[in-house]
Amino acid sequence: MSLLESAVRFTYLSLSIASVYILVAVGFSIAFGTLKFVNMAHGALYLFGAYIGLFVAFEYNVGGSLGAYSPVGLDLGFAAALILVPVVVFAIGLVMERLIANPFYERSLLDQLLVTFGILLILQEFVAILVGRGGFSYDRTGWATGTIPLPGIGTASRWRIYVIAFTIVLLAVLYAFYKYTDYGLAVRAGTEDAEMVQMLGIKISRPFALIFAIGAAYAGLGGILGGSLFTVHPEIGIEILIPALLVVVVGGVGSLTGTIVAGLLLGVTFTATTRVYPEMATASLFLLAIIILSIKPTGLFGKEEVTA
């Protein structure tokens, strides 16, 4: 493999991993920054995304309580799953905002964190009971497999390139929403000062539910993309939460730019360490987070607390 080809390979590996981190982290970060709501159950949205995608796209023999009905699944194909998953998880997000987040906006950060952690465990166990604890992997169809030829360099994994392109589009859409719509304005202002926004007469609860659900849909998409790159099993919700949380705090809570930069940073670090010392790949993320937070306790793009 030429040096150039391995550099390209390194780049798309890093970016595809970063894509999954960012898609999951972005919803968490916005919910935390704007709504002041810490949602550990965000990991369950990734979990749902991965499993719903799996059973929309294919049929599988499963364990757990549904084992007797195997094979389970709609077998509609991967493209259908990519369209359906965000819609379904968006709806789950709306329900979650209403049932879980809403009663807890006024409670302490600690209560929010603990209760949503409990809910994440409950949802994870439900999935395990329904389809068993065994792992699945996405059986990608023709258009999403194989390689793309890069003239003069070699080849690149077609699916990973798609994942990256897809994520860039999604982030551009989110950015535009954030920057150019009234909802986005209300949300940004809400991050600065929720009381002020209410005084200006913008009804704050609706954009909040919407932004919560959008964050959920992104995590769901992260689930189907991450599921297709890694494996799918009931604990992935908790497992993805850790790098996602690192991305959120390293980037600075509530900052879209911060989340993207931190996601890239962690994706690159992870891929690089995997090359030289695979056992320490995950550890390198923790080390990076410790170093950055020691230097800047509110993350790269986090606001210093102003108490004036």
């Binding site: 809570v253 010392y277 320490m280």
Partner: peptide, 28 residues
């Protein structure tokens, strides 16, 4: 290091430290 951080940042940096130690014990 950790006590300079607040709330969720504190929770996560302690998590990171614990996990770093775990991986250190695993391999190096």
């Amino acid at each position: 290091i950790a006590l300079r951080l607040h709330a969720v940042y504190f929770a996560i940096i302690t998590l990171a430290m614990g996990q770093l130690l775990y991986y250190l014990a695993t391999s190096p």
